[in-house]
Amino acid sequence: MESFVDIYERACQRKGGRELLGSLLSEPLSSVQLARLSDDVWLEEFTRKIFQSGFYWSVINAKWSGFREVFWDFSVEKLLYMSPEMYEQRAQDERIVRNYKKVQSIANNCLMIHELAIEHGSFSELVAHWPEDNIIELWSLLKKQGSRLGGNTGAYALRAVGKDTFILSRDVEAYLRAHEVISGGLHSQKSLRAAQAFFNELRSQSGYSLQTLSQLVAYSVGDNLVGVSS
């Protein structure tokens, strides 16, 4: 296994130095900041990432004001009372990207968030205090209890809102395979546990967040555009 220093130095060389690399890195929110978020934020971001999956993100983002109008600003409290017939009707609304199966995921994920909020005080509290050294189990929870949140979808949503997580992007996957950290299916339990252990070790060496480490690994490989985020 390469050390953190090896990965960091190569990323610096490929991105034009420490200063330029630093400008490309980002940090997650703190647990306090996460716990303060409305649960509606999670439902909105889960929905955004589900619709972006397999589609041009720019198209989804351009229509997002329409999504917010159609689905009541993703209010969990309000959407709990939306009937299946209403969801079916809204799936045909021209203000959104019309995909009935993905629209159905809103109802399912709304219920998931509501049920977990009852158990943990709020969904945001659950996410905020989930241990980062076992973030793959949070991914698993979203996949099992949510709808269409498997693969990278759940992880990308967590990252977008501010939860510290690594991402198994193409560049990160390429690195992990090249260095024989993982083999076989990317999202097999064996591969996920190996990836988690790898990032936990880098975190112990550096003190950096999983988010920053994931970005550093990605910037240390793949297509290199100096000073450009990937």
Rank of each mutant, 00 (worst) to 15 (best):
S3D: 05
V5N: 12
I7R: 09
Y8H: 09
Y8F: 15
R10N: 10
R10V: 14
R14Q: 11
K15D: 02
K15E: 08
G16C: 06
R18A: 11
R18G: 00
S23D: 06
S23Y: 09
L24R: 03
L25G: 05
S31I: 07
V32S: 10
V32H: 07
D39L: 06
V41H: 07
L43T: 03
E44A: 07
E45D: 02
R48E: 05
K49Y: 09
K49H: 11
K49N: 10
I50A: 06
F51Q: 08
F51H: 08
S53M: 02
G54R: 06
G54A: 03
S58A: 13
N61T: 07
N61E: 13
G66E: 01
F67C: 03
F71T: 04
S75W: 10
V76R: 00
V76L: 00
V76P: 00
K78L: 05
L80C: 01
Y81E: 06
S83Q: 10
E85P: 05
Y87V: 01
E88L: 10
Q92R: 03
Q92H: 01
R95Y: 02
R95T: 01
V97P: 02
R98D: 04
K101A: 13
K101T: 09
K102D: 13
S105W: 14
S105I: 12
S105R: 13
I106W: 15
I106E: 11
I106M: 15
M112C: 05
I113D: 13
I113T: 11
H114K: 11
G121E: 06
G121P: 09
S122M: 14
F123M: 03
F123S: 02
E125K: 15
A128Q: 06
H129A: 00
E132K: 10
E132Y: 09
N134M: 01
I136A: 01
I136W: 07
L142E: 10
K144H: 06
Q145D: 08
R148Q: 14
R148A: 12
R148C: 10
R148H: 13
R148P: 05
R148K: 15
T153R: 06
A155I: 06
G162I: 04
K163T: 07
D164T: 09
T165M: 12
L168K: 04
L168R: 03
L168M: 15
S169G: 14
S169N: 12
R170W: 05
D171K: 02
D171F: 07
V172N: 13
V172G: 04
L176K: 07
R177H: 07
H179F: 12
V181K: 09
I182D: 14
I182M: 14
S188M: 07
S191P: 07
S191D: 08
A194F: 11
A195T: 15
A197K: 10
E201M: 12
S204F: 08
S204A: 15
G207F: 05
S209D: 04
Q211A: 06
L216V: 13
L225G: 00
L225Y: 11
V226R: 08
